[in-house]
Design a protein around this nucleic acid. Structure first.
Lengths: 339, 339
DNA sequence: CTGTTAGCGCATTCAC
DNA sequence: GTGAATGCGCTAACAG
């Protein structure tokens, strides 16, 4: 029951050719600059194109050329400030390249992720950027057999797959060391989901910083979060309920830190006067919380740009260059010297 | 210089047909359920498909069928919590339909927006969802001549274009009335960009609420923001610099409110004890700010879902049903009775 | 029930 | 320089 009574059928290259009184191949040549064409025909064709408002059918082009000029982006959550920043980098990286991106979400689920990648492959994307993927390296390599893939969060260096990995352990380490330098010794850690590798690496960094300072790691000070505000809030709440003493909390990511901050607010505890707080990620909003959040800056935007460049290199068979900048601590206003 | 030495060429429907010893059309029939096929061939084909890991080339399918099973989404900012929520609604709305979305950004610029829409059209999307578009209704209608379009922020009811509009004036009105009921009389307004229609409608609601309560509208209390944190911060700063007296501020959107809140924090002014604050949008993060933000809830997610359903209806020539739920005030913890 | 044929819109040989 | 012919992978008549 398709109702198309008002819909103008798009003009084709053939229409243009007829209108301009030339052959389709000539129009194609002008469109692609494939060969020299006489001035007269060129203007005629260009006039026809303009007048008919013609634009080549990209599906036909893609089918013919074997390149869709599309790249697939796999995120885990389509509405998360974390992926947003990276997507912005991808978007900028694609600017002027003629490529368009199609974004799909794996919803933090390996099975769904695989399905989505297969979908992208069926749509003939020319390459894939996988962000925070859940699938194994082996699976990535398998898919890379069909199309080049650039992935975050893993080390990969084959001809069709490359990975960029952030040093989570180090990031957590500098965060906690900052707290220690400020005189804190009872530092709580709101972790991420236990199955999450990033989260575990951050826990390792937390542990190392403590050990280096000869501070015993108290398991009671480590509480599980979920990388979201709700988890952070609950985690700290739990800390209070179990009567833990602490002067600072390091949250495994900024979202968790927001939740922690709210919990503290509700209890009438001042940040940073009573308790210091450090996050991880440096989301765009983190410089505008009240107070602005001290956090480990992850170069999200750059990751997007660099991953995009790398993918374009893979697609064009060029040598991949560049790496992501290191993590750095951004000291803002949620941390202070312990009194 | 494309290096494809490791890349497996995708198998085609013809390969499957050969492998299974049937004709291509039989394979196609099984794939599409177009006609009955004998059990024997069916299992043979299905085995071949599984074994060869075949998936139909969607570009070829699209070219043939004239439907790409793709819809285009135009946002204005690819990394904004505002669009995110709506995108999530779109994503959920598309689930199980076979459609994939391609998201492009107009960057709040009419020219770029037009260009992107043309790009989507060239890519043969089956329909378009335009979010917070900058182009004129006339232009929308023009594009709708090629593919169905659903747009937010405007009233449209043609056979190929429909629009959903939120009552910004009313939203602002209930926000300010809430403040007035709390006893506030000196209420500042942090507006949006002066060229933004939503922002102006919200200003109108602010004005009406004041007038209804016989409170003179003081132009000095209306300061221009930019719909971002920075603008909100600057705006309130300006208010203080020009020595204005006020007990509450209504921000044209949540992002502005965050900025306002930070400015107040820096000045040591308590929210809501000293000054009340109301936002507009109810972004996902607004229930986790400290304190949680009182705001006008915009059904972002629902808008995404409803717009998607509407578009699918347009595409299939079905009757469009459903409208977006009304705005409502969410009273949280940034407002209190004036003392 | 199933194979053969034609063609979606375009780029690319190949002749001229 | 330019037109005619071919085919990318698939589906939809059209025959049988």
């Amino acid at each position: 029951m398709i109702d198309e009574e008002n819909v103008t059928p798009p003009s084709t290259l053939l229409d243009v050719a007829r209108e301009a009184g030339v052959s389709p191949s000539t129009v194609s040549r002008i469109l692609n600059g494939t060969a020299r064409v006489s001035e007269g025909k060129r203007v005629a064709v260009e006039a026809a194109i303009a007048q008919m408002n013609f634009a080549p059918n990209q599906m036909a082009q893609g089918l013919k050329k074997g390149r869709s000029m599309t790249i697939g982006i796999v995120v885990q959550d389509i509405s998360s400030p974390f992926f947003d920043e990276t997507l912005r980098g991808v978007d900028d990286g694609l600017k002027g390249t003629g490529y368009t991106s199609v974004i799909v979400s794996g919803h933090w689920n390996a099975q769904e992720e695989s399905d989505r990648i297969r979908l992208l492959l069926a749509r003939k994307v020319d390459g894939i950027i996988l962000l925070s993927g859940r699938i194994s390296d082996k699976t990535v390599l398998h898919f890379a057999n069909h199309r080049p893939i650039v992935s975050t969060g893993r080390d990969l260096h084959t001809k069709t797959a490359i990975g960029f990995k952030i040093d989570n352990e180090y990031g957590a380490y500098i965060a906690v060391r900052h707290l220690i330098e400020l005189g804190h010794r009872r530092i709580a850690f709101v972790s991420g989901p236990p199955t999450n590798m990033d989260a575990n690496e951050r826990l390792a960094g937390y542990t190392r910083a403590l050990q280096e300072a000869d501070i015993a790691v108290d398991p009671k000070l480590v509480v599980e979060g979920d990388f979201h505000e709700a988890g952070g809030l609950l985690a700290v709440n739990h800390l209070f309920e179990s009567q833990q003493q602490f002067t600072a909390v390091f949250a495994a990511n900024d979202l968790s830190a927001y939740g922690v901050r709210l919990c503290l607010y509700r209890k009438g505890i001042r940040v940073p006067d009573d308790i210091s707080l450090v996050g991880f990620d440096d989301l765009p909003g983190s410089s505008y919380t009240a107070p602005p959040l001290t956090t480990v800056r992850q170069p999200l935007y750059d990751i997007g740009r660099i991953a995009t460049n790398a993918l374009l290199c893979l697609i064009n068979g060029e040598i991949v260059q560049g790496d992501v900048p290191p993590l750095e601590l951004v000291v803002r206003e949620t941390t202070r010297r312990v009194r």
